[in-house]
Design a protein around this nucleic acid. Structure first.
Lengths: 229, 229
DNA sequence: TGGTTACTGGAACGACGTTCCAGAAGGGAT
DNA sequence: ATCCCTTCTGGAACGTCGTTCCAGTAACCA
């Protein structure tokens, strides 16, 4: 308390872990993954690189904290009072939209051994699976399958999306991708060639949710005891 | 051909794109992601950094080529003459084991707009889905769901696994993880606490395959037309 | 034989993550 | 009031990285 008070009084805009993370997020959003450097961060915070290291161990910890914050905010905004299925879709969409808005966060969340952000998602999904009546033995497998899919597909979508600017060139991007698939070798890639035209009217979000529903259908098909209420 | 011949005659161990990629893979396997530097690569190839740049555009292309090679080799080894379900499990396990053996490759494959390695997996899975009788409209969604799950969970598993050395300390790693989950706040993380004990007898591969089966069950539950043969 | 092309490798550049340290600013003890 | 001690600052410096540049070498072609 004496510590925090002293820090707060040193400068009215005193440096703190939270302020550094927030500045890092702004920098990452504005300039992309390569935009976050300790020099740029120090300039934005009007300080030196050494001062930042007093509050943050290294760049890895800073990136982890930034992506955890992104997921934390997304999870704070999801509704949890609908049916379990709808709530799971809401959680999934929360992650999807968060990574779409902050594409740099996706790479960091798969990385690292079970960070806080992913634990939050796992926890929330697990609770809904319990409410769905998934037997205890199957709960971990089910939750982990959903989480892997959610982060895998969201990250994939985010990194694809960050290459084109916005909805403007989105159709163009899909068109180029479709053309490239259609130009693949006919013997080696018959399947990709056959579905390439569908790429042009592709709705990322709808496609993503359809994947969630496939997994939910798979869980419903497995033996489960219905919830008593 | 004149070009290739000239290159081959310059030195019996002439530099080439393939030789560089192979050396990069060896370096990545031996030293991890941070071990691949152009200096270390030049030393291993007994040349200078500039010579490498004649064959490779930049580090990103080199990493992409290396991870594509890992997936390519894995796909070359999977059996495709069993039932569609079994073949899909074989493809999934091929990716899983490849990323487990080369943990650095996982991060690179999610990244980048649809690289060759992932396209190969998508193609092979798509063909099996066609054989399963999945209707054409649903094929892309189904294939993309499976691929996202496969790479998402495999990458997750690989990065977790690379922190401990091998099966020796694997149980220890799981024990520490379980203890950490059990120590979480009881109000905020009731689900994680409840399943933490299961973590101690956790079989990654079996768990991964169970996830694949959930998705396959979900596909089977959706309307489909049976294959006529 | 002379020039052209294909390729080599080492030196150099700028930027990065990180460390180091001299010092400022306040609080508590004397 | 004075001193120290902890907390915190910020700029300089170090080593390493990806990448570029370029002088040089060997095979081929006219």
């Amino acid at each position: 308390m004496a510590k925090a008070k002293a820090a707060a009084e040193r400068r009215e805009d005193a440096l703190s872990h939270d302020r550094i993370v927030e500045a890092a997020i702004e920098l990452l959003d504005a300039e992309g993954e390569t935009g976050l450097t300790f020099r740029a961060l120090a300039e934005r915070l009007a300080t030196g690189a050494g001062a930042i290291y007093w509050h943050v161990a290294n760049k890895g910890e800073l990136l982890a904290a930034a992506s955890d914050a992104i997921i934390g905010r997304a999870m704070a905004g999801v509704a949890t009072h609908a049916s379990p299925q709808k709530t799971i879709r809401g959680i999934a969409l929360g992650v999807f939209d968060a990574l779409d808005a902050h594409p740099w966060a996706g790479a960091l969340l798969s990385r690292g051994p079970w960070q806080t952000g992913m634990l939050q998602v796992l926890e929330r999904i697990g609770r809904q699976l319990q409410a769905l009546g998934v037997p205890e033995r199957a709960q971990f497998t089910a939750a982990s399958t959903l989480v892997s899919y959610i982060f895998g597909e969201s990250d994939q979508n985010a990194t694809n999306g960050s290459s084109h600017s916005r909805t403007a060139s989105r159709d163009e991007f899909l068109g180029v991708l479709a053309a490239r698939w259609e130009a693949l070798d006919a013997r080696e890639f018959p399947f990709l060639r056959s579905i390439a035209p569908r790429l042009r009217h592709h709705d990322d979000r709808a496609e993503f949710l359809a994947g969630v529903d496939i997994i939910l259908a798979g869980l419903a098909a497995s033996p489960r005891k219905p919830r008593s209420h």
